[in-house]
Computed example of a mutant assay.
Amino acid sequence: FFLLDNAMMICTQFLEAENIPVLAWPAYSPDMSPTYIKYVWDALDRRIRQRITVPANIQQLRTAIEEEWTNIPQATINNLINSMRRRCVALREANGGHTRY
């Protein structure tokens, strides 16, 4: 716990020194875990499952992941990233509680 507390303190000091605004409460809400990444993983999973030849071993899976990762449209990634502002606003309005995300 000491290392984690120390790392959090260092991070907090850095954010304050750089005048980077942060939410007033920790992002414990499941709505604010880097939610968009689960959608990226979901898109990646669908792309791999739709391949004509489904990976049969770890190396084939690794290759498929690398290939499909580069094929996810940048617009998809941008839309997910851009949704974070709405997510933060919704979470703030819900006082850290559940949101529709």
Rank of each mutant, 00 (worst) to 15 (best):
L23F: 12
R92Q: 09
I77N: 01
A90T: 01
E18L: 03
L80T: 06
Y39I: 08
W69L: 11
K38D: 14
N6P: 02
A27Q: 15
E16Y: 00
Y39C: 05
P30R: 13
L61Q: 07
I48L: 12
V89N: 12
A56T: 13
R100Y: 01
L91N: 07
Y28H: 09
H98M: 11
K38F: 13
A27M: 11
T63S: 06
R100G: 06
L4K: 12
L23W: 00
T70K: 02
S83F: 00
I72L: 14
V89F: 06
T63V: 14
Y28Q: 04
R87K: 15
T12S: 09
I81M: 09
T53V: 13
A24H: 06
W41L: 15
R100H: 08
W69H: 02
N71K: 07
P55H: 05
Q50H: 13
P21E: 12
A24W: 11
N78Y: 03
I20D: 03
R62Q: 15
H98I: 04
G96P: 14
A27D: 09
Q50L: 08
P21S: 11
C11L: 15
R49I: 11
E93T: 10
N19T: 03
E18I: 06
K38M: 15
R100I: 05
R85K: 04
P21T: 02
P73L: 08
A43K: 14
V89T: 10
E68G: 01
N82P: 00
Q13K: 12
P55R: 09
T70L: 06
L4W: 09
L23N: 04
P55A: 03
R46T: 06
E67F: 05
M8W: 07
P21H: 05
D45R: 10
N82G: 09
E18P: 01
W25P: 03
R49H: 15
N6V: 12
D45G: 05
D31Y: 01
T63M: 12
S29N: 12
N57V: 02
I10A: 13
N71L: 06
I37F: 04
A43L: 05
N71V: 00
I72W: 01
P30W: 07
R51Q: 15
T12Q: 09
N95W: 08
I20S: 00
G96E: 00
E18K: 10
C11Y: 13
A94R: 03
S29V: 02
D31R: 02
W41K: 07
L15I: 08
R46Y: 11
I65W: 02
H98Y: 14
I72D: 00
L44P: 06
G97T: 03
Q60R: 09
N19C: 05
Q74E: 15
Y36Q: 06
A94I: 02
R62C: 08
Y39W: 11
T53M: 06
E16F: 04
R87W: 02
D31S: 09
S29K: 10
N79Y: 12
I52W: 01
